[in-house]
Design a protein around this nucleic acid. Sequence first.
DNA 1: ACAAAAAAAGATATTAAACTCTTTTATTTT
DNA 2: AAAATAAAAGAGTTTAATATCTTTTTTTGT
Lengths: 145, 145
Amino acid sequence: MFSKTCEYALKAMIFVAQKSGENGRVGIKEIAQGTDAPEHFIAKIMQELSRKKLIQSMKGPNGGFYFSERELNASISDIVKAVDGESIYTDCVLGLKACSEKNPCPVHHEYKEIKRKLIHMIEHNTLGDFKVKLDSGEFFLKNQG
Amino acid sequence: MFSKTCEYALKAMIFVAQKSGENGRVGIKEIAQGTDAPEHFIAKIMQELSRKKLIQSMKGPNGGFYFSERELNASISDIVKAVDGESIYTDCVLGLKACSEKNPCPVHHEYKEIKRKLIHMIEHNTLGDFKVKLDSGEFFLKNQG
DNA sequence: ACAAAAAAAGATATTAAACTCTTTTATTTT
DNA sequence: AAAATAAAAGAGTTTAATATCTTTTTTTGT
Ligand code: FES
Ligand code: FES
């Protein structure tokens, strides 16, 4: 569904949302550890997200990534768009140039319902929401073991 | 959602399902044309599907691909499994090793509903069903123009 | 039997995604 | 000011997906 890069991005953002707060910033090493992602790769991704103002960063000792309130209101969808572009909105299941009513593929009418729910899911979950969810301990960002 | 290879496979299979029948077999060139796919690439894919008994093929003059009744009962899901494997069943939205109740990611509970519908969609649409659909002229396997 | 047609098979090439390594810049602490 | 820390930036590598090209085998029609 999403690119691997995007999966890493989402996990990292959710991880930082949970970890950061009063206590301060979260470093790349900690993010990589906490989400089972390759350190240098996730660093690149965070760099990009930072450039796009979806997260704050600070260099130097005690530096790292963190959120201001504003950014905690960003939805999964905002991150997905930043990394994978609009494809989830425009892709046709069978790979037609665009998913549309004018040139529908044979599964279009069944898929559009699903797509609606998919989009609802990513647009109505903010990073802030996940912070609460993860604190409950019922959800994970990496496999146990 | 599906790999490009899988999209090609699906379109090709649906195309042949529609075209074949009393009139006979459908050649690779015609399939490539009719689905906007690279000829040599789709040839490879059909080869594999034929080896997996999801479609029949015949070499030589008037040769090509065709279905027997049995194969027209195959679902989208059968083709997806043959090409992309089980990933649609097992993938976690955030890329955890597996999508499961035991190690759920933060979007799992919302996603599993969607996934259920997705799986229903691919399991309850047979190639035969598409034949009818496409004959109606309301659906397309490639972009117009 | 021979030539033509068409898929099967094998081998190779291209491209894009995923990942790594090295150097630079900003910030803080001493 | 100097040293240490950590992200930013740049460059490079690896791997997997996508695509093409060439040869072989099977079948049919003459
Ligand atoms: S046109 Fe194919 S999913 Fe909408
Ligand atoms: S565990 Fe992530 S979607 Fe099910």
